[in-house]
Design a protein around this nucleic acid. Structure first.
Length: 557
RNA sequence: CGGGGCGUAGCGCAGUCUGGCUAGCGCACCUGCCUUGGGAGCAGGGGGUCGGAGGUUCAAAUCCUCUCGCCCCGACCA
């Protein structure tokens, strides 16, 4: 295509509203424009990238026997009410009424709809398995859209759903999806990993996420290099590294006005890991004292699994319930429920003495207090792997895909049943699987760029080759450029030719910015020797090649 | 939803504290000349409800009140 005919509004300066690299570059290179918070217009170049990514996705989904369908983005409330999610999902769901005052919503996902379809059409085990997928817009009223295309309120998703007769059959589809996802992300040129994840509101028992490492991500994963354990820190288990302590026998120590772990540890010249942090939580069943080591953070989700809904107690509540100010509370002599992190089983610690301006040192669990034991800390860099005891690393990542084993969470309430070979009615066993194409593109940019702009991998680049005729007033330049352009185009290669009447510098800058993998530079000096220059965007290395040979060389890659 | 920042030409910004004359700069844009291997140069030109509403004042981009929007941190997040 011709640059002069394509809408590629590049920006010389960095947009003020963008912070993450992919956001800045997509705006500067003329790929997207923002309409409102979390809403973007995809310009021609970005649409071409998405088409490429979606083509890869379709190929790999088709290859595992998935069938493409399209479901509405606008849903009647009834179906969501049947699964209960109409009520459990809050402001994140866009809700509206139609002219007949019926409640409707914009689909944030399609489990309900696809299960409704299955419930009407699937009768027999002979109809199974089925795998249906779509590329469809999702709407979520995100509390905080951010980082350009990474977190938006309206976005395309490839979502697929598997329907099986048994858990074993589900396992097969789950595995097929995992393998297909690996191929998709590899073909898109991404660095990525598969990690265990928290099923969250999707329900179901097992789920994994596909993560692309990037500082612009919103999730953290814990990784064990030695055994391969990889999990979202939302559920990652770990063993905090042990520390020798100098503390011995129980002893009351005066700690005037020292309330936080930091304050007391500095005052007593001890490490924060020598402390027990006591946090009073109010659960639906009453107060609970959560105990974690001073250098660790409480994991709210892990705690929720033990005590249900809870919130931190207010300052006044701490005084009312425990009789002492929050800075000096501890597990000794408590009658309320106590849940301690497992790493406190061993060692001797300092904790609040339940007495204003005093702490207790030399405290050991089981001897001095008896809590319930659970893993309730957030896994940190340097913790040890629960499987092999090696050190864990924690990395920031972008979630680019996920796979869930749903089981019967949706088939039961929506009555998606089938008759098995014995004539017994059973709920269909389901799985659901998502990929965000725009996130793939953004992650690719985050992982592959330099000071000058984007560096696309050839599989998802908007064009394969960009031709830069530097001086359009030179007839030879134009004729050679057009000749190469025509030959490459005819052989099926997607070529962009910068035929704009602008100076060479502008063409170079824009070419580097938009990131087409290969540049063919046509300048007068080389032409005099019968040569053109072929330059690699990533390495910035170039070779001069005879005019007659260029097309063949480029065709062969 | 809590905390912070910002709204002045298409983009990036100055001016706001301390009210005052025709609201300014760079880039982009239009015309002409010139130039053509890393965002050239010269000359001329167009473009503004200063986010919006109300108020104070002889006078408001500037002060006050309300409101809308956008970004960042946190909470939240199929």
């Amino acid at each position: 295509m011709r640059f002069s005919k394509l809408f590629i509004p590049t920006l010389r300066e960095e947009p003020a509203d963008a912070e993450s690299i992919s956001h800045i570059l997509m705006l500067r290179a003329g790929y997207i424009r923002q309409l409102a918070a979390g809403l973007y217009i995809y310009l021609p170049l970005f649409q071409k990238v998405l088409n490429r990514i979606n083509a890869v996705i379709r190929q790999e989904m088709d290859a595992i026997g998935a069938q493409e369908i399209v479901m509405p983005a606008l849903h009647p409330a009834e179906i969501w009410q049947q699964t209960g999610r109409w009520d459990t999902i809050g402001d994140e769901m866009f809700r509206l009424k139609d002219r007949g005052h019926r409640d409707m919503c914009l689909g944030m996902t399609h489990e309900e709809i696809v299960t409704w379809l299955a419930s009407r059409e699937i009768r027999s085990y002979r109809d199974l398995p089925q795998v249906w997928y779509q590329l469809q817009t999702k709407m979520r009223d995100e509390a905080r859209p951010k980082s350009g295309v990474l977190r938006t309120r309206e976005f395309m998703m490839k979502d697929s759903y598997s329907f099986d007769v048994s858990e074993d059959a589900l396992d097969r589809n789950y595995k097929l999806h995992a393998e297909a996802y690996h191929r998709i992300f590899e073909r898109c040129g991404l660095q990525f990993m598969q990690v265990e994840s928290d099923p969250g509101m999707m329900g179901g028992a097992i789920s994994h996420e596909f993560m692309a490492p990037s500082p612009s991500g919103e999730d953290d994963v814990a990784l064990c290099e030695s055994c391969g354990y990889a999990a979202n820190v939302e559920l990652a288990r770990s063993i905090p590294h042990k520390k020798e302590t100098k503390i011995r026998d129980p002893e009351e120590v005066h700690t005037p006005e020292k309330r936080t772990v930091e304050e007391v540890s500095r005052f007593l010249k001890l490490s924060s890991s020598d402390f027990i942090k006591s946090l009073l939580m109010i659960s639906d069943d009453g107060p609970v004292l959560a105990l974690i080591r001073g250098d660790q953070a409480l994991h709210e989700k892990k705690l929720s699994k033990k005590i249900g809904n809870h919130r931190p107690a207010h300052k006044e509540e701490v005084k009312d319930i425990l009789g002492v100010e929050a800075g000096f509370i501890g597990p000794l002599g408590q009658k309320i429920r106590m849940i301690a992190d497992e790493c406190l089983k061993e060692g001797v610690y300092v904790c609040g003495a339940n007495k204003q301006h005093y702490h207790m040192s030399g405290i050991a669990a089981e001897r001095d207090f008896t809590p319930e034991w659970h893993d309730i800390h957030v896994a940190q860099e340097g913790d040890l792997c629960v499987n092999c005891n090696a050190g864990l690393t924690v990395r920031r990542v972008i979630e680019i895909g996920n796979i869930f084993k749903l089981g019967t969470k949706y088939s039961e309430p929506l009555k998606a049943y089938f008759l098995d070979e014995n004539g017994n009615e059973k709920p269909i066993i389901m799985g659901s699987y998502g990929i965000g194409p725009a996130r793939i593109a953004a992650a690719a940019i985050e992982q592959n760029h330099d000071r000058d702009g984007i560096i696309w991998s050839p599989d998802i680049a908007p064009f394969h080759i960009e031709i830069l005729p530097l001086n359009l007033n030179d007839k030879k330049t134009v004729s050679v450029a057009e000749k190469i352009y025509n030959e490459l185009s005819e052989s099926g290669i997607d070529v962009l030719i910068d035929d704009r009447e602008v100076r060479a510098g502008v063409k170079f800058k824009d070419a580097d910015l938009i990131g087409i993998p290969t540049q063919v530079i046509i300048g007068e000096k080389n032409l005099k020797n019968g040569l053109v220059e072929v330059k690699d965007r990533k390495t910035k290395t170039s070779a001069t090649i005879a005019i007659e040979e260029v097309t063949e060389r480029l065709k062969s890659g």
